[in-house]
Design a protein around this nucleic acid. Structure first.
Lengths: 207, 207
DNA sequence: CGTTTTCTATCACAGGCGTGACACAAAACA
DNA sequence: TGTTTTGTGTCACGCCTGTGATAGAAAACG
């Protein structure tokens, strides 16, 4: 017998509504009333599930990061040991994994969009700083891990400075996300993947 | 005999105050009252020089872009014809020019910070869209121009796709700016220049 | 000088915000 | 059943926002 209301499901619905509002109107205009309206709830009800605005924001941001982390872990697991793949495939696999961070479809586009707004707010809103820093560190770790695996499997041109290359690839991904969200017509998904492939190809020293 | 008040100077002072508020508190918290307070003016006075908030924002954004454009033009002029420099110098000159877009000192840091906030707002605020698009197009044009010059002077490894390389370098610069503003400790000015140098070196096909 | 424009300063208004308080319905429980 | 917990809806308060209106001082002008 299903409960009449499932609190966890409700919270997820509210977070989904919040994401839609942030994507559509921006974080600045994402008020409790707007989220409640989008979720089809009364503001009083919403406040029963989230005691304060800050609690809602934290939960939403954390939910997004958790979802992304799960997806990345599943992707990493699906790839398995990199050296068991033919060398020609390795760059493609790495690109596919890193592309989880790029706005290539509606889902990832929404993620990146929300993420950019949260990060912008985190610069001056201490309440978001921890989660934002944690996310940035996670992205950096993932990129470094990918580069390390590629290097260990002999796929990269030797002599690379991994510190620099990590920052370079991380910045490239950030920039592609920013550009693709801002100018989807110029920086299309195809262009994003082409740029990423070109970069990894360069690192491998093809040519 | 100096006028008692110079309207143009006043407007510049107000814009400077606005920049300080945006950098310190974020664009979201940059209200007319906050700017007036920062400039040491009464809000009534401020409104005498800027009829509306939108007018102030537009003027401020345009001022920043004008200043940046001037600086870039002066830098380009200072470099002169690229092929008149020794090949070993060309990458360094290009890096120096592109570094005008990176937050390497307080001035550029403020510029990039304000710019990021404006761009984030432009996504959902139509009033900022034109200037934001114009700025993005300008950056893209500059990058393409630099890459074209390097290519024509034989400094780049032949066979590059300039469309892709323009997007790649533009995204890299955007990402470096974003990262350096967000995590100055990780992405220090030295690291930024190192990453940029590494990228241009790669394009040249050193090694 | 007087007149006119420019500048400064203040008040009030409507609108949106987060949030505390509270009443009431509905479900869960004993 | 009655009691308790959970969920829903509404009100009001204080705060901040941009902006219109307006009065008065200061400077510029003829």
């Amino acid at each position: 017998m299903p409960k009449v209301v499932d609190p966890d499901a409700r919270r997820r619905e509210v977070v989904d509504a919040l994401f839609r509002v942030v994507v559509r109107d921006g974080l600045q205009r994402t008020s409790l009333r707007a989220v409640a309206g989008e979720a089809g709830l009364n503001i009083g009800s919403l406040r029963h599930y989230f005691a304060s605005q800050q609690e809602l924001m934290d939960f939403a941001m954390q939910s997004m990061l958790d979802g992304l982390t799960d997806r990345l872990l599943r992707h990493v697991e699906h790839i398995g040991e990199l050296s068991r793949h033919p060398p020609a495939e390795r760059l493609r696999l790495a690109a596919g994994l890193l592309a989880e961070l790029l706005p290539l479809d509606e889902r990832r586009r929404a993620e990146v969009t929300v993420f950019l707004d949260f990060n912008a707010a985190a610069r001056t809103n201490p309440a978001f700083k921890d989660l934002s820093d944690q996310a940035a560190a996670g992205a950096r770790r993932l990129v470094r891990r990918v580069l390390t695996r590629l290097d260990e499997s002999g796929t990269l041109r030797p002599g690379r400075d991994l510190d620099i290359e990590t920052e370079r690839l991380t910045a490239l991904l950030d920039g592609l996300g920013l550009g693709a969200v801002r100018n989807p017509d110029v920086l299309s998904p195809q262009m994003c993947t082409a740029v990423l492939a070109a970069h990894l190809g360069d690192l491998a020293g093809e040519g």
